[in-house]
Simulated assay, not measured.
Amino acid sequence: MNNYNSPNSDDYTLPPESAEINGIPLKHSGPGIASFVIGLVGFLGHLVTFVLMSLVLNNSIELLGSSISREELAIHPAFVLGSLAFLVCLVFNLIGLILGIIGLALQNRKKVFAVIGTILSGLLILFFTVLVLGGIYLT
């Protein structure tokens, strides 16, 4: 018998959530959890890299004087290492996005972590793309 009332009755309730199949609780998807963790690591990596790059470059500009040129700034070791760290974090986000999509495609698994990981990684990739395109078109 159904666990919910018919749509024609006044007190219609939704069927129970599909957290179980045949009495067996669903597990979280492994790729979804990995996507969430990798997305979180990528976000923290972007944040830490941005803060450290800002601090180091600010101190360097103060030491070198305000007459630093773009060419001198572009070859500064902090700028080069920070750019590489941003690219490594971007690769993490790309892997997180792929794992999130795989986690969403799995049947009979909870998809909470896969959704969060996919959104987080996708937003970080989108932000980085907008940042790069903004830098290209504003120079």
Results as ranks from 00 to 15, higher is better:
P7G: 04
N3A: 13
S69H: 11
N2K: 09
I21D: 03
L55W: 00
V48W: 06
N8E: 13
D10H: 14
D11M: 11
L120G: 02
P16N: 07
L124M: 15
L64V: 02
I116F: 08
N108A: 11
I21G: 01
V80Q: 12
M53A: 01
H76N: 14
T118C: 03
V48L: 03
A105H: 05
L47P: 01
E62W: 07
Y137N: 12
L63E: 09
Y12Q: 13
V91S: 09
H46G: 08
L97F: 06
A114I: 13
I61P: 10
H76P: 11
V112S: 14
L52M: 13
G122Y: 05
G45D: 01
T49M: 01
H76Q: 12
K111Q: 14
L99M: 08
G134I: 06
L26A: 09
V56H: 14
G30H: 14
L104V: 02
N59H: 11
G122R: 10
P16E: 09
K27Y: 04
F92N: 02
E71R: 11
S6W: 04
K111L: 09
L84Y: 05
L124H: 10
L57V: 05
A105W: 00
L106A: 09
K111C: 08
Y137L: 15
I21V: 14
I98K: 12
S29Y: 11
F127M: 08
S54M: 10
R70L: 12
E71F: 06
V130M: 11
V48E: 00
M53T: 00
N108I: 03
I119A: 13
V80Y: 03
N2Q: 10
S67M: 00
V115Y: 02
V51S: 14
N2I: 02
L123Y: 01
E71W: 03
